[in-house]
Write a protein that binds this DNA or RNA. Structure first.
Length: 288
DNA sequence: ATCCAGGGCGGGT
DNA sequence: ACCCGCCCTGGA
């Protein structure tokens, strides 16, 4: 494949650190020169920012401009969204100022499902390690700049991989979950293309919940961070529980705050932008 | 050493 | 409906 380049001048709501470190993705890594490099679908990309210009460079499956516009959600008006959310209260305003460059990536549904199954009760360095080993072992190779990169394995790539093999790759107790979910998708027990087409978020959520290793939190992450792009969901993890309790609930023991309670407040305050609000709050509370 | 990290599952009430 | 213990692994 031939190297392509694409640049956007005077871009807003686009900060590399905010996008790649806000917890939505696992295959982007910061380089020595401050740029980020990542593999998604059949693309290998390097992204860097100089002033208000973003430069994308790499090998793409198709036209780089189209690939980038789709993946980085460039047709959505984040300035408008941020303005609306900022009006809600000072907490939102502050968290948005902190994560002003966040964009929700349009990630492959299958990859997002598997990645967040792996994320369960796990830490980020280890999650990234597991995903890299899966890709190196079972993903298709792409050569770029004299280096080898590996696509995330497809369901077919994982067809004959055993539970034991997953355990060897360091998945721990998630081995069986990955095995079973892959099998269910290969057997079309859950049809990913149908999910993409279904506008009813709750139906899609129910369907995701039938997959092994997918509970409420993982399902919501998949709905928000994959190409399903449902911004009304509100994934609740320990950090979100923490920040929601600090700001709005103020219970002495945050672990005692129920999910329902948090969901109710999120819906009342943030409505159909709850997912975005969650992301700003999460990133702010974890990093700041 | 003990704990915990972006939960889910299965088996209790 | 809630609640609880348990689940691999590795880094602090």
């Amino acid at each position: 494949m031939k190297e392509q380049m694409y640049e956007i001048k005077n871009i807003n709501s686009f900060e590399l650190k905010d996008i790649f470190d806000c917890g939505q993705c696992f295959r982007w890594n910061k380089q020595e020169d401050g740029s980020y490099e990542g593999v998604f679908k059949r693309n290998v990309l390097n992204v860097r920012k100089e002033g208000n210009t973003v430069i994308f460079k790499g090998v793409c499956d198709g036209n780089i401009e189209e690939v980038v516009k789709d993946y980085f959600d460039l047709n959505r008006d984040y300035e408008k969204i941020k303005n609306n959310l900022s009006k809600i209260d000072d907490n939102m305003k502050k968290s948005i100022q902190y994560g002003k460059g966040i964009r929700i990536l349009n990630q492959d549904l299958w990859e997002t499902i598997i990645s967040f199954i792996i994320s369960a009760n796990n830490n980020i360095p280890r999650i990234k390690g597991i995903i890299e080993r899966l890709s190196e072992n079972y993903g298709e190779e792409i050569d770029y700049n004299g280096k080898k990169y590996y696509m995330f394995p497809t369901p077919e790539n994982l067809k004959d991989v055993s539970v034991e093999r997953y355990r060897e790759l360091g998945l721990g107790f998630r081995d069986i979950r990955l095995y079973e979910t892959t099998k269910m998708i290969l057997e079309n027990k859950v049809n990913l293309e149908e999910l993409e087409k279904n506008p009813n978020t709750m139906e899609v959520r129910e369907s995701l919940l039938t997959l092994s290793g997918v509970g409420p939190k993982v399902a919501d992450c998949i709905l928000l961070f994959s190409s399903l792009k449902r911004f009304e969901v509100f994934p609740i993890d320990v950090w979100v529980r923490r920040v929601m309790n600090d700001l709005y609930i103020k219970n002495e023991d945050e672990t005692k705050v129920s999910k329902k309670q948090i969901e109710k407040i999120a819906k009342e305050k943030f409505g159909n932008l709850a997912g975005l609000a969650q992301q700003y709050l999460f990133y702010w509370r974890r990093e700041a």
